[in-house]
């Protein structure tokens, strides 16, 4: 007998699971349907198929500029966060030192700050220092938010790989940097790619913090937020939404599958 579930319980849970998945994806599917609907209002009944809204958004220069701004910010953020995150993760996973628990708690603490509080804090900091708000002020904030996620991805991976490989490199005369470049880095590369993607998507999608420190060049989420207030823009926003949702879903799933495969390949066969 299965101690966890009766056959009926299993069936019931499977149906429940299916219903929740429908609930989770239905709004996304509804966006998809209405993005092709030939009407300026997303409402029933459907009135015909059109690609008009997709053409309109491709022709919308402000929207394209905001996507570009967000891509630049997300790229800078992910490079910065992964760089800082790798330094921190190597220290946390490989070194012994006093106050490690405190250091680790501090590095992860941005996970629990409400974004509204962090946003106004940064706003006050830049105000106090007289730094004008710009693309870079958003990057600074986004690095703070993404840093803990990169550590959460990198530390488990570092703990998984055998530290004696690195010790062997030291014994053979390699320095810290050389060991990292030719031993550690190739082994944690899949996790670094994951961390990079997480930081990128976090930044690309971030509205709350950016709304306080953004300069004159608006990001995509900020453009979206303001477009949501004008019903006439709704259909093309829905078309963009569909494109962005699809791209991010595909990237996320492909990256996860690639990471699993790559880590399996890298697994050192047990002696």
């Amino acid at each position: 007998m299965d101690a966890a579930l009766s056959p009926n319980g299993r069936r019931l849970l499977r149906v429940f699971f299916g219903l929740v998945v429908v609930f989770l994806y239905a709004p996304i599917v509804i966006l998809l349907i209405f993005s092709f609907n030939n009407s300026s209002l997303p409402a029933f009944p459907l009135s015909g198929f059109t690609l008009h809204w997709y053409r309109e958004f491709i022709g919308n220069a402000d929207l394209r500029a905001s996507l570009e701004t967000s891509a630049v910010i997300a790229a800078l953020t992910s490079v910065g966060a992964v760089f800082l995150g790798t330094l921190a993760s190597v220290a946390l996973a490989r070194r012994r030192f006093r106050g490690k628990a405190i250091a680790s708690a501090f590095l992860l603490s941005p996970l629990v700050i409400p974004y509204v509080v962090f946003g106004i804090s940064l706003l006050l900091l830049f105000h106090q220092l007289g730094i004008p708000r710009s693309l870079l002020t958003v990057v600074i904030g986004h690095i703070v938010i993404s840093l803990p996620y990169t550590i959460l991805v990198l530390v488990p991976r570092l703990e998984q790989i055998d530290a004696s490989l690195e010790e062997a490199a030291y014994d053979l005369g390699a320095g810290h940097l050389q060991t990292f470049r030719s031993v550690t880095f190739p082994l944690i590369l899949p996790a670094i790619v994951s961390a990079f993607l997480i930081a990128f998507t976090t930044s690309f999608d971030e509205y709350a913090v950016a709304s306080f420190v953004v300069g004159t060049r608006v990001t995509f989420p900020i453009y979206l937020y303001s477009a949501l207030r004008f019903p006439s823009q709704l259909p093309q926003v829905i078309a963009v939404a569909v494109v962005v949702l699809t791209v991010s879903l595909v990237v996320v799933i492909a990256a996860e599958i690639w990471r699993r495969g790559a880590e399996r390949k890298l697994e050192v066969s047990p002696s």
Binding site: L24, P27, I30, D205, P221, Y225, A241, L249
Partner: peptide, 23 residues
Amino acid sequence: APFLTSYLLRVLAWKVILGDQGV
């Protein structure tokens, strides 16, 4: 997977669904 996609866009979806002239 839905969690990893845009937060604002998922909110937008509900705005489209729940409005007076919504779905």
